[in-house]
Design a protein around this nucleic acid. Structure first.
Lengths: 216, 216
DNA sequence: ATGTCTTTGTGAACGCGTGCACAAAGATGG
DNA sequence: CCATCTTTGTGCACGCGTTCACAAAGACAT
């Protein structure tokens, strides 16, 4: 029976082994003392807890470059997602095959959602259309929305929205890049403002050490 | 002179006003007691600190659907980024206009980087090509890489890499969606495993309450 | 069986970030 | 010029998450 110890996993993931064990204990995963965790059982338990064992039908609305990229993205299928439909407002797109499936027109949005029991929608439309699409998705029964459009969506309680801003990560890189450059010529010529003391190791968290508040 | 108080800003951003003031104090931004912060000056200071006032030339390598989507993305320009070049390995793509600029061939990668003084590169290639592209970017002088390819890149010290996984956000939504469904029929039939005690309000942080360790 | 050795699961301590609360600073009005 | 009022900047305390450290549990050898 192939097993892994928390120590091995922690080293691989770059985290503390105690934290890892504590996390696993929250999930109810049971290892065997003196041996470690049964790999297969552990993978199954974590997958189940994360919802990877379920089949989540999703619709992608807005089949531009980004929508097409998402439709073709291989990572979805392996994580339990199934693209149930591609929807676009452009009649010229209707019927065109993208990622091996025909694009459908926005008119059929409600029917598609309901027929496929879709509860997760992806919005990849231009900013102007996003809120309207969002409202229709929600009205049709979607309760989770992944928003790639550069707008803040308003939704009723009980609906989750996550906004993906493709430029934020780039901005974080630029932030650190700037700091690198500043370290070489140590002084901050501009106006005597001292360089703020921010944690040096910015490879830790997913969002680094960027302040909470940014200008829009 | 238009001003804002930390209280107003905090309410708008949904954070604590003391934290906001403390953050600002780290940036060396000075407000005026009894008045607040001069909006224009504050915006400038924050922009400067985040590197938004600089002009960052970036190259996008891999002009598939995603690369094209990124090239067309409007959010870059407004945040201080300038797409200096689009690069693709496919000779058939060379010269084709995407987002108003001609795609260039990978052969010229080194020259493009050096001519434009590029220090930030975006990789939107298939997984198989990513590491090789990465190595060439780094060798040519790039010190920050935004990786959209589903691979973990290996880079020398001093080079920053940020990986964007388009399915992670979707997975987080599915995780909460699953929980929503589970709350209706309260019991966890499966195997007597108790539902782990995780923070209920998952709309706070950018990465919600998903455990640190996930299967690849 | 009994002892040793490995690794888990977790109570307790530590450290850090958040939020409270207030003194200091400056505006504004009399 | 003084009093009052608003809002900043920050010391301090609290709470939470991470890490330490160890007892308990089980495997494995003798």
């Amino acid at each position: 029976m192939p097993t892994v110890s928390s120590e091995e996993l922690a080293a691989a993931a770059g985290v503390n082994s105690a934290k890892l064990r504590k996390d696993f204990s929250y999930l109810g995963s049971y290892g065997t003392r003196g041996v470690g965790y049964d790999v297969e059982y552990l993978v199954y338990q974590i997958s189940r807890e994360l919802g990877l064992t379920q089949d989540w039908p999703v619709v992608i609305v807005g089949i531009g470059n980004l929508g097409a990229a998402l439709a073709n993205y291989g990572g979805f299928a392996s994580r339990g997602f199934r693209v149930a439909a591609l929807i676009d407002a452009d009649p010229a797109m209707a019927g065109k095959p993208v990622a091996g499936m025909p694009v459908q027109h926005t008119d059929d949005l409600e029917r598609i959602i309901s027929d496929n029991g879709v509860s997760i929608g992806v919005i990849a439309t231009p900013a102007g259309a996003a809120q309207q699409v969002c409202d229709r998705l929600v009205a049709a029964g979607v309760t989770s929305i992944l928003n790639f459009a550069p707008t803040v969506l308003t939704v009723p309680d009980g609906v989750d929205v996550r906004k993906v801003d493709l430029s934020i990560e780039l901005q974080i890189l630029a932030f650190h890049e700037q700091r690198k450059a500043g370290e070489e010529s140590a002084a901050d010529a501009a106006d005597g403002t001292a360089t703020p003391a921010v944690a040096k190791d910015h490879r830790k968290g997913p969002d680094g050490d960027v302040p909470a508040v940014m200008p829009a």
